[in-house]
Computed example of a mutant assay.
Amino acid sequence: MKKRKVELVVISDVHLGTYGCHAKELMHYLVSIKPKTLILNGDIVDIWQFRKSYFPPSHLKVLKKIISMSSKGTKVYYLTGNHDELLRKFTDIHLGNFSLLNKLLLEVDDKKAWIFHGDVFDASITHTKWLAKLGGWGYDFLIVLNRAINWGLVKLGKEPYSLSKKIKSSVKSAVKFVSDFENVCIELAIEKNYDYVICGHIHEPKIETITTEKGSTTYLNSGDWVENLTALEYNKKKWRLYEHKIESVTFETEEETFEYENQLIEQFITAIQK
């Protein structure tokens, strides 16, 4: 398979170790590219929801592939997020082509890029972490339930449907949160004279250039590999948003679907009781 050469790739919010993660699709993407630099912008491994009973081979293959890319010359930056915040005690580590950091300032063709996960601007993370963790369980359950529904829709010859996107778009507080998050990142980037501000965290892929009376910057969000399956690519002085297409909804058996749902319900109830 001929690999696409890309100067810079940014992915975030993979959430390895959760049922919602599309590890196989991410693996398909990673084997199709040959980037000079790969930035993992937080929440790659979901330590918040990590369970010994669930870390399938497809998730492990993603980690092995990233290590392999680093050993073959790709510069890999792992920037910590809230779901893998336990790694923050080990940050500022550089091992060959691999670096573990909290944030990154990068020169991209003589332009300054400010790259970080983004949870630092999320009040629910900084002040009510227990609520954010509870929301994580609920989100994971919603994604798996959505997969089960889409499995049935595909069997009936109908288009897949995104429950999480519908809910977020219809709830005013969620829409306001996304807007506030983006505005804070943009305002600070302009204040600091950064040409690009690159985030993850909110699972909303976007590329948008904003100009205010104080200056201009380009806001970029790499999205996620749970519902959007997106990445940012930079090549020949241009940014593009890569969107991976899912050819089919895969659940090997109906029993597997119900088993996932039952496990998540039990874990969600346990989290509430805590």
Rank of each mutant, 00 (worst) to 15 (best):
N146K: 02
Y78L: 15
T217Q: 08
S164N: 13
T253A: 09
P35S: 04
H244Q: 15
E159C: 07
L156M: 13
K103W: 08
S162K: 03
W151V: 08
K3M: 14
K274W: 03
Y139D: 09
D119H: 15
H28Q: 11
N41F: 00
A23H: 11
C21H: 02
N146S: 10
C199M: 03
A113L: 09
K237F: 05
R240Q: 14
I39M: 06
T217Y: 07
E252K: 12
L8I: 08
S53C: 04
V184C: 14
T18S: 02
H127C: 08
N183H: 11
Y219V: 12
E182M: 04
A231Q: 11
L86Y: 13
L38F: 02
K75I: 13
L105H: 09
G138I: 04
I66F: 13
E255N: 13
K155L: 14
L30H: 03
A174S: 08
D180H: 10
P205S: 03
S179P: 05
K165H: 14
V249E: 11
K5R: 12
I39V: 13
I265C: 03
L86I: 10
K166E: 13
N193H: 12
D110A: 08
K158F: 12
D195Q: 05
G157V: 01
T212S: 12
L95F: 06
K158N: 11
I44V: 06
W137E: 13
S222Y: 04
V120R: 13
E259A: 11
T211V: 01
W137V: 00
E243A: 08
F268N: 10
V171T: 09
N41Q: 02
S173N: 05
C21W: 01
T230R: 07
I149N: 07
C185S: 14
H203W: 07
L8W: 01
E233M: 11
L16A: 01
Y54I: 01
E159H: 10
K2H: 05
G17Y: 00
K238R: 15
V6L: 13
I210P: 12
L229F: 04
T211M: 05
L60Y: 11
I125K: 12
I149Q: 10
T18L: 00
K36T: 06
K165M: 15
D122A: 12
R240H: 11
S53Y: 03
S99R: 12
K274Q: 10
L264I: 04
P160D: 06
D84E: 14
K112D: 00
L241E: 07
V184R: 15
G118P: 09
Q267C: 00
Y196H: 06
N221L: 02
E7A: 15
A174R: 01
L30C: 07
G81F: 00
L142D: 05
V14F: 06
D180F: 02
F268W: 11
N262C: 00
Y194V: 07
M69G: 05
E159W: 05
I186A: 08
N82A: 10
S173Y: 09
E187P: 01
V9D: 10
T74W: 09
A148M: 14
L264S: 07
G152L: 14
A231V: 11
N102R: 08
E208S: 15
F268I: 07
I115Y: 08
S68K: 13
D180G: 04
F116D: 05
H201M: 06
L153W: 04
Y194H: 08
A271K: 03
V14G: 04
T211Q: 14
M69C: 07
R88G: 13
